[in-house]
Amino acid sequence: MWDHEIRAMASTHAIIAASVFMATILPAVLVPGFSVYGTHLLWLYSVSAAVAAVSVSVFWLLGISPPTKKHTLGYKLSRLFRSCLYFFLSCLFFHTVVILYGAPLIESALETFSLAVLLTSLTTLRCLCVLGPNIQAWIRVFSRHGAMSVWDTCLQITVAFTLIGAWLGAFPIPLDWDRPWQVWPVSCSLGAMIGYLTGLVVAPAWIHYHRKQLTYKCK
């Protein structure tokens, strides 16, 4: 049963990673003048959209989302509405945090917000998929004993890697090398993306090697 879950996770991650690559390559073929640095925002949106779409559909197909108590249409709709609301709030939250960390307040607000959208679709969206719109559960997941399934552990790993990647991405900005990827927010979004991809690879591997130690209380 564990091997089965890990295998499912690995293939999910492979699909998501593939979607990221497609979202980078396809526009490069289709849109003239597309490049990751040059038209950075376009790349950001395409990657965010791809990750969002693929994650939502894959997790929905797999049926990872927590069991809902009611099955009425109204309840489902309110869940959907809350999910959208949380997504937007999370964008705002990331935007604020990034500004507090020193991003320019007004000048490149669009760039900053795009970065926030990317971070949201890499982290918050996954939380929404795995845990549903339930902030208490989100807070609970990020504690040592909070994971209650392999998917929770996987969520911990990918989110941590993404955020650390984005954080590390800020480090090259002050250097006086004058490279195109030092422009705000290129290095941060690249860092987040690389962190996310690393997380996708690391999570199944880590879980695979630690499957003996991992015990989940109830599922």
Binding site: Q136, I139, R140, F142, S143, R144, H145, G146, K217, C218
Partner: peptide, 23 residues
């Protein structure tokens, strides 16, 4: 973040799933 990771940030009672014996 670290406090939450160690399970100190939110009161344990708010988490009904948690078995009391672990911590």
């Amino acid at each position: 973040v670290r406090l939450n990771w160690d399970g100190h940030l939110v009161p344990l009672t708010s988490d009904p799933l948690k078995s009391a014996g672990l911590l």
